[in-house]
Amino acid sequence: MEITVKIFRYNPEKDQRGNYVTYKVEADENDRVLDVLEYIKGKVDGALAFRRSCAHGVCGSDAVRINGRNMLACKTLVRDVGSSITVEPILGLPIKKDLIVDMEPFFDNYKKMLPYFINESPLPENGRERLQSPEERARFDETTKCILCACCTTSCPSYWASGEYYGPAAIVSAHRFIFDSRDEAADQRLQILAETDGIARCHTAYNCTVACPREIKVTKAIGEVKMAMMTGKLD
């Protein structure tokens, strides 16, 4: 079938500002939106710039706005969004070219969370694994799924209002360690999140949960971190 694809274009070496260009192309309803972008790049305009790698929703490269909502282009099928598709860069990060945004501010916020396992206690004497019950492991299962695609953070009105806010993705990364029974630095992370640009900026808009292509209940995870902050308990 023929579909109409309207794409935000911006070449900083030529354009004063971005504009929308409309393409009419043949597509199958089972094509990924990424397939459509690849076709346009391959056959219509090679200069079209976007990021992509795995093409099946696990690497997090191709977060874009499709018909106004944040999605991964490789995990969105034409049949899900219809024959008239608008593709734009995600909001709140500086646009570098076409659909590519500057991811550095996003990763900078992630890095503020001490996003690595911290346990300075001696290893088990037999050299084997630290023990963790299946229930303890399940406690933080969901937030281990995060692929750092930025769909959540760049759908968050608080993040749009203040780019200083660490954003939902950073809090999800903190949650993954705060609720890991083996980790010893929950207090440090909760202190970081108690700062002005931390968790207080979350106003529970739920956009993040809707946007997450990994179906992480982001708002719930943020709520759990807030609760831990208030009660000092991690259960």
Binding site: N119, R137, T144, F177, R182
Partner: peptide, 8 residues
């Protein structure tokens, strides 16, 4: 030991 969340 690096923190990888293996299933248990």
């Amino acid at each position: 030991h690096m923190g990888l969340p293996f299933d248990r």
